[in-house]
Amino acid sequence: MIDEIFNMAEINVTLNFTTALLTIFTAFVLGIVISFTFMKTNNKGASSPQGFSLTLVMLPPIIAIIILLIGNNVARAFGLSGAFAIIRFRSAAGDPKDISYVLFAMAAGLSCGSGFFGYAALFTAILCLFMVVLNKMNFGVSNVTSKLLKITIPEDLDYQGVFDDVFEKYTTSYELRKIKTTDLGTLFELVYSVKMKEDINQKEFLDALRCRNGNLNIILSMNADVASY
């Protein structure tokens, strides 16, 4: 019985209503499992876009339907590849983990469309378990996170090296990312990417910077990857 479940693709299955329903339903369930795993392992938490979670649900049945329609017809395969080639994707590149989940969902849909329902469920369960375990272990997470620092200075202050001694005292690394003028050129805005040392008092760090920039605006963002600058 188990061998029959895992080797359904070896049977000469023709496309019919029952097969189509079974394929779509199985792919849809696997998509829900993958999407749920993504939401639980996503470090962005509440900021995770709902559209991407829904995409992970719908992607496996869509891929499965495409595989069912193509079958062994080479002409259909070339026709669909040409149709996909004209689609222009304008969305910005996402997190590498998000891309891996997209490939994960596509693999699940491909397996269901090919008739390997047992194998699709098996590798989905194993990979989702791996993702949950690795997330619980905080695998690959750095203890030091980058922060975005915006410092406003007067136009008569030479910004080159003016904060270097402060950065060396409170940070492990720093990099000047951007310089721009504000208020009709009367002020400069410096944008740094910094990595704070452990057990550093952020207020003391900001106070030391305020002594150099004339108590003008200073913004310290918690995450340099999501902050806009």
Score class of each variant (00 low, 15 high):
T172S: 12
F78A: 14
M39K: 15
I65Y: 10
E10M: 06
A125K: 13
I2P: 03
L21H: 12
I200A: 09
T26H: 04
N213E: 08
I65V: 15
M137N: 01
M1H: 12
I219E: 15
D98M: 04
L157H: 02
Y159D: 09
M58R: 01
I126K: 01
Y174S: 12
M1W: 08
A208D: 14
L56S: 03
I2H: 08
I65W: 08
I218C: 06
E189A: 08
G118N: 06
T41K: 00
L30V: 02
L190R: 02
T152Y: 11
I218W: 01
A224P: 14
I11W: 00
K97F: 11
D156K: 13
T145I: 01
I32C: 06
S228R: 07
G113S: 08
N7V: 04
F205Q: 10
T124Y: 06
L190Y: 07
F36M: 11
F25H: 01
L184F: 11
A227Y: 05
P154D: 03
A107P: 07
D225L: 13
F163C: 04
A64L: 00
M196A: 08
G79S: 02
D158A: 15
P154K: 01
L110T: 09
D158L: 15
V29F: 13
N138L: 10
D95V: 02
T124I: 10
T37P: 07
E204W: 05
N143W: 02
A107C: 13
A227C: 04
D95E: 06
I24T: 02
Q202K: 15
V13M: 11
L56I: 12
L59Q: 06
N135R: 08
A20K: 04
T19V: 08
A27P: 03
M106I: 12
M137C: 03
D98P: 00
F163G: 01
L30T: 01
T19G: 05
L122P: 05
D3W: 04
N12L: 13
K197G: 11
L190K: 02
L22E: 14
E189C: 09
L184V: 10
A108D: 00
T37K: 02
Y170P: 08
L187K: 05
N201I: 05
N217F: 14
F116C: 04
N143Q: 01
I5Y: 04
T152A: 11
F17K: 11
Y170D: 04
F104M: 12
